[in-house]
């Protein structure tokens, strides 16, 4: 016996299956991409590389890109059959997160613009 056979000889066949989906390489690739996205975010925020009104959009795009890198390379969320349930739960979680954040911002901005002017006293 050699390699993975020997490592898992004490397991009953099949039940705790070994899934070689993750590898040192995939984490290293993820780290590289995440570093690139992070540095790009800091550069975009602190220089005039992007047209000034476009900076928030650029930052949000970079943040989503980095979150995607983290999900795929660090959390190992793939398209395999094992991940179907996880992906569905993630999609629902993202829907709720979007509703909470966008809804709050929208409602409060609307309330703010309809406020009576406050008199200072």
């Amino acid at each position: 016996m050699s390699g993975t056979d020997r490592l898992f000889e004490d397991r009953s066949p099949g039940v705790e299956e070994y899934e070689p989906t993750a590898s040192y390489l995939s984490y290293t690739v993820g780290l590289g991409l995440a570093i690139v996205a992070t540095i790009a975010s800091f550069v975009v925020a602190q220089t005039n590389l992007l047209w000034a009104p476009g900076v928030p959009v650029g930052l949000i795009v970079l943040a989503f890109a980095q979150i995607g890198v983290h999900l795929v390379f660090f959390l190992q969320l793939g398209s395999g059959a094992d991940h179907t349930n996880n992906i569905l739960a993630l999609a629902f979680g993202m829907l709720i997160v979007f509703l909470v954040i966008a809804g709050s911002v929208w409602i409060i901005a609307n309330l703010n613009s309809n406020m009576m002017p406050v008199s200072m006293h």
Binding site: N85, N86, A89, L90, F92, G93, I96, V97, V100, I101, G103, S104, V105, I108
Partner: peptide, 24 residues
């Protein structure tokens, strides 16, 4: 892992509320 993933997502929803408060 699936059960724990559900917990993490509920934690994310709590963070979403704090993010919303900060954004406001």
């Amino acid at each position: 892992a699936y059960g724990f993933w559900i917990f993490i997502l509920s934690d994310m929803i709590m963070f979403a509320a704090l993010f919303a408060a900060y954004a406001v």
